[in-house]
Amino acid sequence: MLAHAILSGLVFGCYFTLVGLGLNLIFGVMRIVNLAHGDVVMLGAFAAFWLFALIGLHPLISSVIVLAAFALLGLPVYYLVVPRLLAARDSEMLSIILFFGVQQIIEALATIAFGTSERSIPGRVLGRGPLHVLGQTLPVAWIVSAAVSLLAVALVYLYLYRSRVGTLTRAVMVSRDEALASGIDVHRVSALAFAIGVALAGLAGVFSPFMLGSATPAMGGDVNLAAFAVIVIGSLGDPRGTMLGGLIYGVALMLMQTYMSAWANLLPNLLLIAVLLVRPTGLLGRQVRRA
């Protein structure tokens, strides 16, 4: 039981890394809190569902389409909303209010458009039968979802640490004002980061029916809570921290389900409180400040 819980937790944690990654990137670069992140994940789930239901598109192909479409969607949203938000005196607080409104709008429109019933894509689409890993059996759909998540994390890492625009992005992360003073086109860099963040949320949505059972317009709230727990554990603004946070969250969730199942939904809150009390900057917080 313990081995299965830990292994499942690690796989599940990889997926939750992907869920939190976009949120963390947006916060890290722009210092705005995207409360609509979970609802973007939901939109990604419904996009994949409809692409599968209407034209039978494989989720892996859908993921590429969703990634591109959501990135393109993110760009105009950035220019419409974020520059004005960043010009405000307290952009963090204001972003919470603004994106809370956006979240409500997305959920309401999705409910009207899609109805309230659960939707999902058959797990067999990603591969039949369970896989045997280290003596434990895991659904193939989990392994595929985790593999895609790891690939996304790796690509984000390469983008941030092995590309010129990634270097500029990290400069904006460290100090927006200094980046601006040194001639970096902060809005261009931020818009790109915002688009990537939205695209990553959409990508996480594509695999949510496989990891979370089904998708509904109401799923955004729970996804948000998990995503916040993941990025606060790791540290706000650091993708490596998100990976660490995702794995800790996944393993802790599975251990809770195994040994204290009735209390498992308290986990995100407990982890958030524990991290904020013991290490408010997150486990990798110090490194972020010096990045």
Binding site: Q136, P139, W263, N265
Partner: peptide, 14 residues
């Protein structure tokens, strides 16, 4: 388990 539970793989194993 909490009503919000959306993943049962570990529970099934248990």
């Amino acid at each position: 388990v909490p009503t919000s539970t959306s993943n049962y793989a570990v529970l099934i194993d248990n």
